[in-house]
Design a binder for these strands. Structure first.
Lengths: 233, 233
DNA sequence: CAGTGGTCTAGACCACCGG
DNA sequence: CGGTGGTCTAGACCACTGC
């Protein structure tokens, strides 16, 4: 437990990481409490606290009052995805982004979507289908239902200049969301849009967003074959 | 901007959230700086800082020194997955968990795996295939390559009592990882193992983990058809 | 350069909860 | 009950970076 470098939150964190990595502190074991570590590192307890809280957030430590801090038995159980803004993702790869509205109607969503949006049966809401392309090649096919009761001005929005995703993000400050990932076999209709074969295995991402208690939108994204959603922890 | 409740980090955060939700502060707009907010809320600047940092982490705010703090144009861009410990996930649903080692040999991994694990060509390492079941039904099919140089005692491990996943998690304190999700069409071999049809669309999760500079393992999970990986932000 | 966020400190009080 | 983490404070200095 050397204290070579000078007091900074990250320094402490790195030291603690090292102790865990080198199994000086083994999984499940209690580590010294904050006051001791502070003395050891020659810094304030608040600094140690900050460092340890970060590690606890990351899942490497488990902390409980009075019980103390332990090395987690099952570390790295979390992964954070930054949900791609499609435009940024495509342009970030140096490709030309474009989108095309394929469908735009008021219609009654299927039962599962009604349930997700907490809507009464038979209710008609805004239905959009959009294809996003990279250098003209299909990238992701979006099917979206917008609760036009909660977002009335969606009816008049011009989704051709600003994509539905970008329009919503700018217009409606939603604060919570649900995500689900699954495998999905392309229907013939999907295949036609995405330029792939029917029954191709695609990555599907579903997402509902809400503002307070209002359910705003349900989106289903079908990514082109071969797409990988990637993250690093 | 009422300051009804008394000074706590979370109180401040909730107030700021409200200002954003009610569009008192609009996306892209500058908000008052920390010192002002501290005065307004009647608390220390450190408290405001803590609150705002949390919101910046969550993607709701964008902060830069000297430039100040703005409401993010594209909020809710992040979602955190807690990577399921398969046993916990299955048992948490009230099902009986079990696993069966289908394959265990030293062999040379395909080129892509070699690359991911930073290994020289032709190198033989431990190759495991495991089926995890819920109430006896196939749940997820795991193909794993373990860098047995970095983890020599993996060769003698008894993976029948403790699953490879649990054994590794307990034995090797890895600290970083890479995840990727994609759609995947089951091969006939996969289908046989998972009890589904060939070419069924599956959710595939790939994962490499490392401890410091050592690449520990590469895993590919194929989930049963219909599986959804779910998260809430 | 000067304004803003980022961090550290020393001390304090509190909430929780294990023994 | 008492030990531990959780948080707040007031003040300070620093690191960036827009102007």
């Amino acid at each position: 437990m050397t204290e070579s470098e000078r007091k900074t939150w990250l320094t402490v964190q790195e030291e603690v990481r090292r102790c865990i990595r080198q199994r000086i502190w083994k999984p499940g074991e209690l580590i010294p409490h904050e006051a001791d570590l502070a003395r050891e590192f020659g810094c304030a307890r608040a600094t140690v606290n900050r460092a340890l809280q970060g590690l606890a957030d990351a899942g490497l430590l488990e902390r409980r009052r009075k019980a103390g801090t332990r090395v987690a038995l099952t570390p790295a159980r979390k992964a954070e995805f930054s949900i791609p803004i499609i435009r940024e993702e495509i342009e970030g790869k140096g490709h030309r982004f474009d989108h095309r509205i394929l469908h735009r109607h008021m219609s009654a969503p299927p039962p599962d979507v009604l349930t997700l949006l907490h809507l009464a049966n038979g209710r008609k809401i805004l239905h959009l289908q959009t294809l996003y392309t990279a250098d003209g090649r299909p990238y992701v096919f979006e099917t979206r239902w917008i609760n036009s009761t909660a977002v009335p001005n969606a009816l008049d929005a011009d989704f051709d200049t600003l994509s539905p995703n970008e329009w919503l993000v700018r217009e409606v400050p939603f604060d919570r969301g649900d995500f689900a990932f699954s495998g999905y076999a392309a229907t013939t209709a999907d295949a036609k849009v995405l330029g792939c074969q029917p029954a191709d295995a695609l990555l599907m991402m579903e997402r509902t967003t809400q503002r307070g208690e209002d359910m705003i939108t349900y989106v289903r994204l079908l990514f082109h074959p071969g797409y990988r959603m990637h993250t690093r922890s």
